[in-house]
Amino acid sequence: MSSASPEPDAGAAAGSPSEFLKNIVGKRVKVRIGSGVDYHGLLTCLDGYMNVALEETEEWAGGRKTAEYGDCFLRGNNVLYISALEDL
C-alpha cells in the first residue's frame, strides 16, 4: 500500500523493476504523471514505453477526485511513477 514512493515494494519484493511491473499488473496502482495528477486504477497492462492501461480509473488532482474513467490509456512519456496501492 505504499503510495508515497514510486516502487518501494518492488525492489524489496521482486528485486527488479521489471519484476515489479510484472507483479503489479492487475493490481490497484497509482500512476502519477508529470503534471502531478494521480490516476488510481486497476493496472491492466503497461509496455516498455511506460504507456499504461488502467481500469476503473480515478483521476486525483489536488487531493480531489476530478474524474473517473472506465478504462484509460496513459501515454508513457507523462508517467512519473507507478506505485502499488495494494499488497503484491
Binding site: 521489471s18 511491473l21 516498455g48
Partner: peptide, 12 residues
C-alpha cells in the same frame, strides 16, 4: 518519438 524505456514481460 517515444522509445521503450523498459522491456516489460507480457504474460498475456
Amino acid at each position: 518519438a517515444p522509445r521503450p524505456v523498459l522491456a516489460i514481460p507480457t504474460s498475456n
